[in-house]
Nucleic acid binder design. Structure first.
Length: 144
DNA sequence: CGTTTTTGACCCGCGC
DNA sequence: GCGCGGGTCAAAAACG
């Protein structure tokens, strides 16, 4: 399968539909994820790292869009109401517990629904790389 | 060789 | 109490 590379920067102006769905008590995936063994919250439990959820609708012939981070696919399941399967991705950073879900819209196969869960706690490499020369130039001009 | 991708199987929570 | 659904992990294979 071909790679996109800088698709994030070459994104067409179609990726403008941003839907905010910050609601629902998604919490920690109801069913799966049982493998975890550190859920033994003592009496002080109650505070759970609730990760925010953001759904983005992107129109692209490609399934996956590189938003500047590295994603590793860890699962794929078919969804009801949709003839297309849903792909589960995760940030490859060990310090980053961000999850991403990509699902194709049944109405338009060209539309993909990207759902981001969590927040990156590490700088964006791609973005940094893209800004590296620019930042350097800025510093150079500032210092001058 | 390292990393990533793919399929199957497993587990837990909730529903009835 | 049991069954189903959904989600995740694991191992092997493929790719660069």
């Amino acid at each position: 399968m071909p790679e996109l590379g800088l698709a994030s920067l070459l994104l067409p102006s179609a990726a403008a539909a941003v839907s905010l769905q910050g609601d629902e008590a998604e919490g920690e995936a109801g069913g799966g994820g049982g493998r975890s063994n550190d859920k033994s919250t003592p009496t002080t439990m109650g505070k759970k790292a609730m990760s925010p959820k953001f759904a983005f609708r992107t129109k692209s012939p490609n399934d996956i869009l590189d938003d500047g981070y590295r994603w590793r696919k860890y699962g794929q399941k078919a969804v009801k109401n949709s003839p297309y399967p849903r792909s589960y991705y995760r940030c490859t950073h060990h310090t980053c517990n961000v999850k991403k879900q990509v699902q194709r819209q049944s109405k338009d196969a060209s539309i993909v629904v990207t759902t981001y869960e969590g927040i990156h706690n590490h700088p964006c490499e791609k973005l940094m790389e893209a800004f590296a020369p620019l930042l350097k130039q800025i510093q150079f001009l500032t210092g001058l």
